[in-house]
Design a protein around this nucleic acid. Structure first.
Lengths: 360, 360
DNA sequence: GTGAAAGCGCTAACAA
DNA sequence: TTGTTAGCGCTTTCAC
């Protein structure tokens, strides 16, 4: 129904060719910056493009090329819920994108290990891969490896934790300093007039996201809630067992803990500890990432709030951005901005969101 | 770079034609459910489609058809910030979609006026429009008009406020009951141990979204914060002037207001009132929709939290869903679920998000 | 009922 | 350096 009989049709390369008085092939060469065109001709064509307001039809171009996008995600080999969720999202999106000429895959790298990450990046086959999304620490060797990818025309985006000093094309993730500030504000306001100590559970200060969250958290705590004493970070390295072992010591040293900020992937260890050790008198807990475990903790009141980032959005954004970059197309930044989600038990999304829904 | 030389190419209609031993034209007829094919042939083709796991390449199909999607948004003519933001999003997305064969437009209808809405729906030219997104009240006449659209093959989605009793294909917006619950939880926890009255500012009980928010709000207030007395709703009909005039009366009748839930588009009137009337002693205020005004109120502490829904996401979702519906393609529900955003001043997104960013 | 062939906007051989 | 042409996967006339 409803064919495209509108008068204002977009100009095509045929129009460009006619106006510039050259052939289709020449227009194509100019469009794709291929060599072998006289400078004067290039000018003519570009003039026509500008005059007509031409915009290339990417769908048609990809059809003609038989192009297949190949994107690789490099993720920490850590097995926590957030990572699992990211992997699931990648797999599901990959299935959905089979028919849109896009292939996604991921590889694992030891967590918090810059050398291993650099090695993994260097192992990327730049002749077959169009884009790489990296979730890992920022170090000089990583920067060099990123530079190598860029030199070979591979699009690079950082995921979850930024690598700002590198030549990565984009960062896809939340503003972690702001996330830390938000956690502090929630914790402080929920605690109201209570006085006591606040425990911060983190992963590793090598991870930029963890560091930034702590920064933002301390800033707001110091400014708005000076009556609360924030303890030194407990570095759990996202390891549930380690966290469970470390927590009792902290507790015995500080008996007056009324608030906990679980700023990294330590929810599992924390919850296991809380379950066995009801010594704490109803602390206010703010954690990160909405997962089955944290959903459950929210529901039963063990967690009071969860700061989160949508793993589906992260993966879709990464893919859209890598694709746009490969096609030299503009990016809708408003769509790609990853929100700092705040969840109370009241606004948790329904648990079983069916991923793909068929249509009549 | 990186051509598609992968061995696992998706099957095309050529493959179907070959396997089913018919011509391309016949395959096409079956695919598009066009008449004039013997039942036996239809079976053969469908068998081949199933055997090969064929999925149609929508991009190629649209290219061949020269198809243009035509979608219309029907919006209340109310001039509040949220509506303006929706309109801006529609215009911007329309500009971005010019080269993706999609045309968006919107029409206005008197707010809270079911008859006017039904008239506007009936005025839609079903021969030129592929999909309609409706933001308006749910009444029998509206349901009938929706049914008429559906009967003529037009995709219909409800936006912001659902019309569940109608034949609309999808609802695009937040769970407003949950949004109300969330507001109550935030207000209650932020108030801590304070005791007093809570004022609820709404638009019209004719609007399903407003009604549902109030429902959710009362539920949590009654359950978790029985020490707070919730006053009857003040119906502001989203009219700043009216709200500003009504508020002083409410205040003189109830001197002990310590919390305000601005559940509809009444922020402007409320803020104008708060500016002139500092009689209230620092009430906790939870409002709806992140807009320039509410951002500012959050920044300076006039609002404590804002519940929001992303207007860009609403519009993009509506378009994606209407497009998928027109193409009979599956929908990624996880992507289309509209989140109940909670904003404190700490996690507000940066103000000036440039919409489109060019690429090298 | 069915098929052959042209063409959507673009790319990529191969010629010239 | 430039142009001609076939063809990507699909739709659509127009014959048969």
């Amino acid at each position: 129904m409803k064919q495209g009989n509108d008068p204002q049709l977009n100009p095509t390369i045929n129009d460009i060719a006619r106006v510039a008085e050259v052939s289709l092939a020449t227009v194509d060469r100019v469009l794709n910056a291929r060599p072998g065109v006289r400078e004067a001709t290039v000018q003519k064509v570009n003039q026509a493009i500008a005059d007509l307001g031409y915009v290339r039809d990417t769908a048609a171009a990809n059809l003609a090329r038989g192009r297949v996008y190949n994107f690789v995600f490099i993720l920490p080999s850590n097995k926590n819920e957030f990572l699992l969720s990211l992997e699931t999202q990648i797999e599901q999106l990959n299935a959905g994108l089979r028919h849109e000429r896009t292939r996604l895959s991921f590889v694992h790298v030891a967590a918090f290990d810059p050398v291993a990450l650099a090695v993994a990046i260097d192992a990327i086959d730049v002749t077959r891969v169009d884009g790489v999304a990296i979730f890992g620490p920022e170090t000089p060797s990583v920067r060099d490896s990123v530079a190598h990818l860029k030199k070979n025309g591979v699009t690079v985006v950082s995921l979850v934790a930024d690598i700002p000093s590198s030549e990565r094309d984009h960062y896809i993730g939340v503003d972690n300093v702001a996330a830390g500030r938000t956690a502090a504000q929630l914790l402080g306001r929920f605690l109201g007039t209570r006085r006591g100590e606040v425990l911060v559970l983190t992963g590793s200060m090598l991870a930029r996201d963890h560091l930034e969250r702590r920064l933002g958290f301390d800033e707001v705590m110091g400014r708005d809630f000076p009556h609360l004493r924030v303890l030194a970070s407990l570095e759990g390295r996202d390891d549930p067992g380690l966290i469970e072992r470390l927590l009792p010591d902290v507790l015995s040293d500080n008996s007056d803990i009324i608030g906990i900020y679980s700023s990294a992937a330590g929810n599992e260890g924390l919850l296991r500890f809380l379950a066995t050790e009801p010594a704490l008198e109803n602390p206010v807990v703010v954690a990160h990432e909405l997962t089955p475990l944290s959903r459950n903790a929210l529901s039963c009141g063990l967690f009071d709030a969860v700061i989160s980032q949508d793993s589906g959005h992260l993966v879709r954004s990464a893919v859209r951005i890598m694709r746009a970059n490969s096609d030299r197309m503009p990016i809708n930044m408003a769509q790609e901005r990853i929100r700092i989600d705040v969840y109370l038990k009241e606004n948790m999304p329904p648990n079983a969101v069916p991923n793909w829904e068929a249509n009549p």
